[in-house]
Computed example of a mutant assay.
Amino acid sequence: MNTTSTYTVILETGYRLFAEHGFEKTSMAMIAKEVGISKPALYYHFLSKEAIIDVLFEEICKDIGFASFFNVQDYSKDNFEEKLIFDGLSIISKQKEDDNYSRIMNQYQALGYRNPKYSRKLLDSLDGFTVGFVELLRHGASIGAMADKDTLIKAQMLTMIIDSMDNFMSYGFEYGYEDIWTKAVKAIVLEDAVK
C-alpha cells in the first residue's frame, strides 16, 4: 500500500524536475503531468511554482542541517574521533547518492543573488554547522575526548571544510573527500587530544 501523500509526491517531483530543467523552465503543467494529477489539483496543494520552490527549499535546509548528521548525545570519549569522522562522511555519501542535490542547490544559490531570503537561509544553515560544531567540540572536551582549546576556530574550520567539499562536489571535482575529511578531523580537532 502506497502511503506517500500527493503533497510529498509533488515536492519530490518538483525537486527532480527543477534539478533537471531549472526553476525557469519547469512549469506547473510539467509537474502536474509528471505527478499524474490535473493542474487544478496541483494548485489545491500549492498556489504557485514559487510556493513549491519555497517549501522545497525549507525541506532541503532541514534535511541538510547539522542535526541531521551529528547528534552530540551519541558521542562518547571512546567513540568521539571515529564518530566525528563517520558522521561527516555521511554528508559526503548523501550528496554522492543524490545526483539532483548539487544541481538544485546551485539554483538556490543563484536565487540567493536576487532574493535575500534564500541567501539568508543558506547562511543560517552554515552558521548552524558552526554552532553545532562548537557544541560538539565542547562536549568532546567535557568528556575528556579532546582538549578545550580554540573551540570556535576549530568549529569554523570544520564548517568551512564541509562547505568547501559540498561546493567542490557540486562542480564535479573528483577529490578524495573521505580522506580530506578524515585528515581534517584528526588534524584540527584531535591534534591535542587528551589521552
Rank of each mutant, 00 (worst) to 15 (best):
Y43C: 08
L152P: 07
G112F: 04
K77D: 02
L126G: 14
L84D: 01
K62G: 09
D74P: 06
A51M: 01
K94Q: 04
G128N: 10
K39W: 03
D127R: 14
I92N: 03
Q156L: 05
I92R: 04
I64V: 12
V134S: 01
E81H: 03
L152S: 09
F57D: 10
H21L: 14
Q73W: 04
D127N: 08
L17K: 05
D179V: 01
M146F: 02
S38D: 00
T182W: 00
S142Y: 08
Y177A: 04
I37D: 05
R138F: 00
Y171F: 14
E81T: 09
L84M: 15
K117H: 04
H139L: 07
F23G: 09
A41G: 10
P116D: 06
Y171R: 11
T4R: 13
F129A: 04
A110D: 14
L84H: 01
I37N: 08
I104R: 07
K39Y: 15
S170Q: 03
E82C: 03
S125H: 11
G22S: 12
L47I: 13
E97D: 07
M146E: 00
A147W: 01
Y171N: 08
N79W: 05
I85M: 00
D87S: 05
A29S: 14
D163I: 05
Y43K: 12
G140E: 08
F80N: 01
L190A: 11
I52D: 11
A110I: 07
D54T: 04
V134Q: 11
F70V: 13
F57K: 10
N100E: 13
L11Y: 11
A145T: 00
F18T: 08
E97W: 05
T182V: 04
Y118F: 15
R114M: 14
E81I: 01
I180Y: 06
K25F: 13
S48P: 11
K83M: 13
D166F: 15
K96C: 03
A51D: 12
E135F: 04
R114H: 15
G65D: 15
A193Q: 14
I85Y: 02
Q156R: 10
D192L: 07
L111H: 05
T3W: 08
I10M: 03
F46H: 12
E59I: 09
L137G: 04
H139C: 06
I10G: 00
N2C: 03
I188Q: 04
T130V: 07
R103E: 13
I31D: 01
S90F: 05
I188E: 03
T8N: 08
G65I: 06
T130A: 00
T182C: 07
L17C: 10
E20M: 12
G140D: 11
L11S: 00
